[in-house]
Design a protein around this nucleic acid. Structure first.
Length: 137
RNA sequence: UUUUGGGGCCUGGUCGUCGCUCCGAGUUCUUUGAUCCCAAGGCGCGGGUAAUGCCGCGCCCGACAGAGUUCGGAGAGGAAAGUCCGGACACCAUAGGGCAGGAUGCCGUGCAAGGUUCACGCCAAGCACGGGCACCGCGUUUCAAGGCGCGGUGACGGACAGUGUCACAGAGAAUAUACCGCCCUGCUUGGUGCCGCGAAAGCGGUACUUCGCAGGGUAAGGGUGAAAAGGUGGGGUAAGAGCCCACCGCGCCAGCGGCAACGCCGGCGGCAGGACAAACCCCUUCCGGUGCAAGGCAAAAUAGGCGGCUGGGUGGCCCGUCCAAUAGCCGCGGGUAUGCCGCAUCCUCCGUUGAUCGCGCGCUUCGGCGCACGCGCGGCGGAGGGCUGGUCCGUCGCAAGGCGGUCCCGAGAGAAAUGACGACCGAAUCCGGCGAAAGCCGGAGGAACAGAAUCCGGCUUACCGGCCCCAAAACCAU
RNA sequence: GGCGCGGUAGCCAAGUGGUAAGGCCGAGGUCUGCAAAACCUCUAUGCGCCGGUUCAAUUCCGGCCCGCGCCU
């Protein structure tokens, strides 16, 4: 299962939107925030739609995930990189469990590097069951 | 062999499944293919023109670029860290010089990212080796100071250029000082001896000693202090003192040695001299500022700016084709979000191509256009060389390793790739057994510090362990 | 990533080469019927850590650690 750069949450605005409008699931060593995107695009003026796709909204069914590992919660750079990579690998393998059109934010805590991979995976699968189904489905 | 110290080097391996980023090649899809600068398309039908590379529709073909996909290749460090120094690079400022501010600091040789020069050479954060000087430790020698040897440490210019500070303690602290003590003189208290007088008590004298006072000498000794104003030994003296002498230290002068720092030796001076410049400061040498969030290009929405046109009424006055504000439309330029470049090894040469510039010729509606050439610049391709990493070979070294040649390769992310998971081998360490010991066998255990962010060099800091060399000590064997 | 500032009792802090003010807090006392307020007294710190210079360092110099701010 692939997990390309387009599926990464990268904008400050996207992160703020998930944190302010989304909901939260506790997973022990990490926290998941989620927010179902409005499938109807903000719809700028008719003329703007014809512009080149610099600011095209993401495809409505795309699942996007952002990973957060702060220096205060996780530690120095090696710990942060490792936490981010492990969480990303888990999300990548089970991304089909996420309803399409959802933005996810995975926030690591200090314990994440002490947990076994199996525990982290079980928590993630459990959290995905609590996610609301996609709007159109 | 072990331990300690110093120096140099390395930073676990193999395989499987699933992934990320970049590069190359192939393949599929996507298309504004004449609005100067061009992707100089094709066919058919219809329309239009003085004419066309005119307009519309349909089908086919289609670079560049982008996206998907397949294959191949590459992908964290010795510190990537701290950001402490030096530089490249970029922008800003800049005639030259100075002030301020900051840094630098014994001498010689070599190395060094780089800078500068036509070149020689010079500068450079720092590093290595050798030397000088100072201090510390040990040994040795001397009566002692001191000398000599070995080892270590040193931000090691200047304290007669000037200013300043030296608390407390102490008598006295930088123009030194005189508390105790020591000595001399005078007076005085007591004691002892001797002499004289006296029967004796005693009186007088004198010598030594002693209590106290006054005057003076002294800087040996005590005590205080971080430091007490040359040191040690001897002579000398009432006691002492560079007062005198010897040695040492210090200052000045001359000679000799050394590339130099500096040293040696001789003479003179009885001694001027304290410490602090990581206090201000003086001298030497160097430094413009900001930093890739530098800087450059493209560029939306909203708001605002400027210009033009149109509209109506408002306000102003020197009453107009005026001025100001205002609404709508059109245009312009600037900034921002955002994206791209900077940014992925450098240099030289050759070829090709592109735009700018210069020059020449020609044409021109005087706006420019075309052709050819040229300096410099950019892209692509090729060749050569340097650097980094690796293979192989040679050579040097006791060795880790260094040097030279050869062939191959050259991380580039951007909420930030270089991985996730599993299996096996595996160092340290622990447990058990065997053994005199070294060690062997079995089990447990499962690898330090740590993640590029424009690049290069240095320094510092963190760190499991391993390998090699040197020195010292201890033990064992010969 | 780059640049800059700071660290002194439990808290806020002044300060300088010679053992560190002041305030809040705390403890005890006076006052009061009991409190508050007021007044008096007291306590603790060797100045983030490690080196160096100096007779002497919180201060000067160097290196670490921690905290904060600015530039997109």
């Amino acid at each position: 299962m692939r997990f390309r750069r387009e599926q990464h949450l990268r904008r400050q605005g996207d992160f703020k939107a998930v944190r302010e409008q989304g909901r939260r699931i506790d997973c022990g060593a990490y926290t998941i925030w989620y927010r179902v995107r409005d499938t109807v695009a903000p719809a700028p003026a008719e003329g703007a739609a014809a512009k080149p796709a610099l600011f095209a909204p993401p495809p409505p069914n795309l699942v996007r995930v952002g990973f957060v590992a702060s220096i205060a919660a996780v530690g120095p750079a090696v710990q942060r990189n490792r936490a981010r990579r492990r969480l990303r690998a888990i999300v990548r393998e089970h991304q089909l469990l996420i309803p399409p059109g959802t933005d996810l934010l995975v926030v690591a805590r200090q314990a994440v590097n002490r947990w076994e991979n199996r525990e982290l995976t079980e928590k993630f699968i459990g959290a995905c069951r609590k996610l609301p189904p996609a709007k159109g489905a």
